[in-house]
Design a protein around this nucleic acid. Sequence first.
DNA 1: TTTATTTACGCAATCGTTCCCGGAAAAATC
DNA 2: GATTTTTCCGGGAACGATTGCGTAAATAAA
Lengths: 339, 339
Amino acid sequence: MKYRAATIKDIAQALRLSTSTVSRALRDSHEISAATKQLVLEHAARLNYHPNPIALSLKEKKSRSIGVIVSEIANSFFSQTINGIESVANEKGYTVIISQSHESFEKEVRTLQYLASRSIDGLLISVSSATKDLTHLKALHQFGFPIVFFDRIIEDIATHKVMVDNFQGAYNATMHLLQQGYRHIACITNSAHLSITRERVAGYMAALEKHGIQPQPALIKYCFHGGMLLPEVTDAVNQLIKLKHKPDAIFATSDKLTTGCMRALKKAKVAIPKEMALTGFSNSDLIELLHAPIPVVRQPAFEMGQVATELLLQLIESKRPVKEFETRVLHSELLIPSK
Amino acid sequence: MKYRAATIKDIAQALRLSTSTVSRALRDSHEISAATKQLVLEHAARLNYHPNPIALSLKEKKSRSIGVIVSEIANSFFSQTINGIESVANEKGYTVIISQSHESFEKEVRTLQYLASRSIDGLLISVSSATKDLTHLKALHQFGFPIVFFDRIIEDIATHKVMVDNFQGAYNATMHLLQQGYRHIACITNSAHLSITRERVAGYMAALEKHGIQPQPALIKYCFHGGMLLPEVTDAVNQLIKLKHKPDAIFATSDKLTTGCMRALKKAKVAIPKEMALTGFSNSDLIELLHAPIPVVRQPAFEMGQVATELLLQLIESKRPVKEFETRVLHSELLIPSK
DNA sequence: TTTATTTACGCAATCGTTCCCGGAAAAATC
DNA sequence: GATTTTTCCGGGAACGATTGCGTAAATAAA
């Protein structure tokens, strides 16, 4: 017994009306008499009629769904962002289709093609750590397809963008280490072509220079896979602790890297913060429960998701092509563990 | 300049063929000559033609998308499960639409209605902690709508189910505590009407009885919101530590509850495991980095997602209504921290 | 009473695709 | 050379809903 949803035709036949009349009655058109409207409405309720969204999509040429691509949802920052995205999207009647790139360029391209083929109305994306080539995004963007970048943005593409004050967040975190007396501070960061990498490393360097310390390239380690592959982080950390002039602190520029460092240091039996201080960006809510509760830069992830979605829907629902784009910068917060 | 995807009509017009011919050529029908096929295929490639999934959905009466409802994705167990779900679904050409109930019954019902209105082909659900009334699920199920339960299953509804050996997992964890010498073990668990609650509490009790210990109702605390609301857990823990005969260990039956206990104990300044031992179900990968690395019961979340999806797709793609259902029980694992 | 206007509804096209039917031309058979 | 069979392709309906246009009947205005 296969379930068949009631259609407008069912109502029309039962009431000996045309489908047009039923359609108009349901949409409360002025050219339908009150009596007919009532009849239709009652019968629709009885049949538990709901307009078929697929038929509507076909006609309207929009699916009322938006795609989201993040590196992985098993990451506090992104899962919190997604919550923000859903809160806004669902309220406006949009479905959210979430996909993960797992920090792989190929996966990102494939996933993007897939989403495009599912005819989403717009895209929210935080590009993968491995994304250097932008043709897949530029091609879509040139067609006038609505895209909003968040977190890891692409400067090259003219559209709305949402991020935090990456420079300031990194600056504050590094400054905090300096104030604690650490002077030889290393930085473990994402792949070099990511916007967040550039900005956060710049903030880190600025803090050092403010203290008259010359940043050293040997102390900056780039992880191409953004900590997705643990060995990458472990190697970076191991190289640092084997240095003749070993750093006394590490600043990690993202969630996965921060916890990756903790793992690596634990494995190498380096005590935090005694032998090596640590700080970094993280939205994990387990930080306070950790063996070494470190100071972290927390991003307003939920809010970021909300803002990005609002901007995207604005783009989608705009009648005329939008020519003026905004870049929203939210504030990060340095969370210092209570003693 | 609005982007308009190439359609079969565009190809037909350009090649002076009918849409039927183009359609057949693309599907490699035997009644189209090789020459025409080649022509069509080439032109399709040039226009970057992709069949419109919405039009297909309308015709086929299936959307090739499945809905997933979990309590929240910012939960290691569920995000890992979702990864498993996506891996199978995407491979089979299905889109996954993820929704969160946030452990609220109302949200679950609303979300389910929403998914149904988006005409998903099937549903994967781990019911919310607050779900007692099952009419929303039963109604859908009676229409022959494909549903597969995972993790928190509903015994009443006859369909495929996937879960872990909850009894055994709880038994093992409790037994481990007993072997360590703890005798007065409390249990903090989800709302009483959840399948996982019943089974895990039963495992806990069985282990106690095996050691000749009579389970005490006062030591079993039910959290209706499954730890979604921290005060709920904090209250439970506080009540336990204020008992005249204070327990020496706690067994928490789920991820959120386990970390909730840690928070509560930390706040109450109760040392783990010195003053109070702790163990529980958890799939968090940060456990080993915690201040007190506790033994945890780990579920094969990814695999559970895969199996559940395979069963669901089997249900969806079956020609005849399926009458025989399976309940797959996967194995959990007790992870003991290295000293 | 005649004409103009409104009211209330139906017809048919449309969105992109598939598929049943029907049929002309080419090939095969007698 | 006439018939049958293939081969190859087009016409048109269908999926569910919306909407511009046409129009009969009812009402209002002249």
